[in-house]
Design a protein around this nucleic acid. Structure first.
Length: 419
RNA sequence: GGAGAGAUGGCUGAGCGGUUGAAAGCACCGGUCUUGAAAACCGGCAAAGGGGCAACUCUUUCCUGGGUUCGAAUCCCAGUCUCUCCGCCA
């Protein structure tokens, strides 16, 4: 959510920036609505002041006048609410303002590769895709998932299921023991205002799974990422300065409709309706966002370094960043079967954008209240890490070597083979 | 599922139709005292929004949304959430 005051003062620049973020609707109405809104507020306040005076005087002869004022207030108030609602509707669907060092461009072609890490292995045979390997092992079963549930789901079985669990545990342990994060096991559903807080609503409702406990109850949503529920832990709150920075990690299933990606990554488990992800969230003083983003990204890449998976780090352009982000690094892991890098983590600073929506504040040393800064990043996507291990650690005979850091989590076995 | 109780500032908690943005305590901040600290004492301490260059000033807010009233934290209605007891159950 934007601060209308700031927009008002730098309107032309704001419009230019939003163009770079592919906002193509007319923003001029924003200024008119803002003007109208403030005018109505002023009118209303004058009447309210009068009314207040009368009721304090307790003079019976003025009571009828006060009644009249009340009805006038009501009219103006209804008007003001309408205008305000319209204003908020527009404001809440405008994406965050990118930081200055974010490359400007309309889509992913303008993203910049920052660095490459790890050694890409030369295979003496043609490396198989993760789903070929998994099906050969009899440990990934897409047909079975189609039978019971539908497309974009998978059964992971046997040693591969254990490997998936091992990956998740290894990541969480690393982040809690080495990187200072606190482990959380959160609810997997969220209310609509929680979803609004991090920016999933109202604009991206059709990508969310909606749940109702009963016909009468309010709707809830399956979380598309733990970011939603972890970040909203500070919603509607004035956070104690001493508790900042808050660093949280959770491993949760994530649920996404993937509307609009029909025909994309239909094979395998790259893009599923349900997947596990280890998520990192930081709540910080807003001036520390930039540093925290670097720190968080390093925590994510640390996992890939330990697993010896080749990856590259890129910075997303203005047009490719998510709605709430002001700056985003994507980490992409090497997939031999596709002969290219694929996203495995996305780390974003949201500045105060989400905090404004959530009304999450803290008081600085001078007791001024400020919105907190929020950041989130995958540390890492578990399903995609499983894919990366299958593909990068495959042998010609169809077996998979277990990366060293995961062995303790796998009963110290060295590899997974076809039975 | 059945029967009750409640929701007030960062926290605990009073108030139950007007002078209450809200007592008191804790926490926090500043000061006095002290070699330093603690204690004690004195003072300060809600958020959001509007107007103003500013000093400042106005409005709103006591779970949410309606209603009664000249006037609501206080009365009425609906909803949400929390707690206690009984039943059921992982």
């Amino acid at each position: 959510m934007h601060n209308i005051k700031v927009i008002r003062e730098n309107f032309e620049e704001f419009k230019k920036i939003m163009k770079s973020r592919n906002v193509n609707f007319d923003l001029d109405s924003l200024l008119d609505l803002d003007k109208e809104n403030r005018k109505l507020i002023q009118e209303k306040e004058i009447l309210e002041m009068e009314k207040k005076k009368i009721s304090k005087l307790k003079d019976k002869s003025l009571f009828s006048k006060s009644k009249e004022i009340s009805s006038n207030i009501e009219v103006i108030n209804n008007n003001q609410n309408l205008v305000n609602q319209k204003l908020n509707e527009i404001l809440s669907s405008i994406p965050n303002i990118p930081l200055k060092d974010v490359p400007v461009g309309k889509d992913e072609n303008f993203n910049k590769i920052l660095s490459k890490h790890g050694d890409i292995k030369n295979f003496s045979f043609k490396p198989l895709s993760h789903y070929e390997i998994g099906e050969k092992l009899n440990m990934l079963d897409f047909d079975l998932a189609t039978k019971t549930t539908g497309s974009r789901f998978v059964f992971v079985k046997g040693k591969l299921a254990a490997l998936e669990r091992a990956i998740s545990n290894f990541m969480i342990d690393t982040h809690t023991q080495l990187n200072g994060y606190t482990e959380i096991s959160p609810p997997l559903m969220a209310t609509d205002d929680t979803m609004y807080g991090t920016g999933q609503l109202p604009k991206f409702e059709n990508d969310q799974f909606e749940i109702k406990i009963d016909a009468k109850s309010d709707r809830k949503f399956l979380i598309p990422t733990a970011e939603v529920i972890l970040t909203n832990m500070v919603k509607n709150q004035i956070v104690d300065l001493k508790s900042l920075p808050m660093r949280l990690v959770a491993s949760t299933p994530c649920f996404r409709k993937e509307a609009g990606s029909y025909g994309k990554d239909t094979k395998g488990m790259i893009r599923q309706h349900q997947f596990y992800k280890v998520e990192l969230v930081s709540i910080v003083e807003n001036s520390n966002c930039k540093d925290e983003l670097e720190r968080m990204t390093n925590c994510a890449t640390m996992i890939l370094d330990k697993l010896k998976l080749p990856y590259r780090k890129i910075i997303l352009s203005t047009g490719d960043m998510g709605f709430s982000a002001e700056k985003t690094y994507d980490i992409e892991v090497w997939l031999p079967s596709e002969n290219k890098y694929r996203e495995i983590s996305s780390c974003s600073s949201c500045g105060t954008f989400q905090a404004r929506r959530m009304k999450a504040r803290y008081k600085n040393k001078n007791k001024d209240s400020n919105f907190v800064g929020t950041l989130n990043g995958s540390g890492l996507a578990v399903g995609r890490t499983l894919i990366a291990i299958l593909e990068n650690y495959q042998n010609e005979d169809g077996s998979i070597i277990i990366p060293d850091p995961l062995k303790p989590y796998m009963g110290n076995i060295d590899k997974i083979s076809v039975n």
